[in-house]
Computed example of a mutant assay.
Amino acid sequence: MHEDPRDLGATLRTQMARWPTGAAVVTSCSNGRLLGKTVNSFHATSLRPPLVGWCLDHRSSHLEDWLTAEAYVVHVLAEDHGTLLSRFCGPVERRFDDGWRTGPDGVPLLEAEVPLRLTCRVQHRLTAGDHTYLVGEVMSLDTSEATPIVLQR
């Protein structure tokens, strides 16, 4: 099927939603502002050194704060974290209503038991089209036996 190049972005988004993926909540703090968002673009980038990355849409709320943050935490969500997933997709002012504490570098750590939690320091910010790819070095990680969530449309 050949698409009009102007429509490829919308088609790509629809088709990529069919691809099973995990979901994570990334949290940070910049300029005294708590930051948190749901992402499914998270993945390992390197093992030596241990690097992980995720993509930030340039239309994202608090874009400048995200781009100046020096650290972030990736919380891989568990299959029973649908409410947490929804909360971090919803209104910005409600994302940190409960269940978090301050971690290293001032980043917020969610209290939820997650399959994987990675505390990272930003190493690279790479512009890629309408997103910035944020690569962080893993400084610490915590795991649990919780089963990660899988999303697919």
Rank of each mutant, 00 (worst) to 15 (best):
H2A: 12
E3S: 14
D4C: 09
R6T: 14
D7A: 14
L8P: 00
L8G: 01
G9Q: 12
R13D: 06
T14I: 05
A17W: 12
A17N: 12
R18V: 00
P20I: 02
T21A: 15
A23D: 00
V25Y: 10
T27A: 05
T27Q: 06
S28G: 15
R33A: 11
L34N: 09
L34R: 15
K37S: 12
K37A: 15
V39N: 03
N40C: 03
N40Q: 11
S41Q: 04
S41D: 04
S41T: 13
F42C: 00
T45C: 11
S46R: 09
L47R: 05
L47V: 13
P49C: 07
P49Y: 12
P49D: 09
P50T: 06
P50G: 07
P50H: 12
V52S: 09
G53L: 11
C55P: 00
L56Y: 06
L56K: 09
S60G: 07
L63Q: 06
W66Q: 02
W66L: 08
A69I: 02
A69P: 01
E70M: 02
V73K: 13
V74H: 02
H75K: 07
H75V: 05
L77M: 08
A78P: 01
G82C: 06
L84P: 04
L84K: 04
S86C: 02
S86E: 15
F88N: 04
C89P: 00
C89K: 06
C89Q: 15
G90Y: 11
E93V: 10
E93M: 07
R94D: 14
R95E: 00
F96T: 02
D97I: 02
G99W: 09
R101Y: 03
G103E: 05
G103W: 08
P104Y: 08
P108C: 05
P108E: 07
L109D: 01
L110R: 13
A112C: 06
E113K: 10
E113D: 15
V114G: 06
V114A: 15
R125S: 03
L126S: 05
L126W: 10
L126D: 05
A128Y: 04
G129L: 07
H131N: 04
L134W: 10
L134R: 04
L134E: 03
M139L: 15
L141Y: 15
L141P: 01
D142L: 13
T143P: 02
S144W: 13
E145M: 11
A146W: 12
P148F: 14
P148C: 11
Q152E: 05
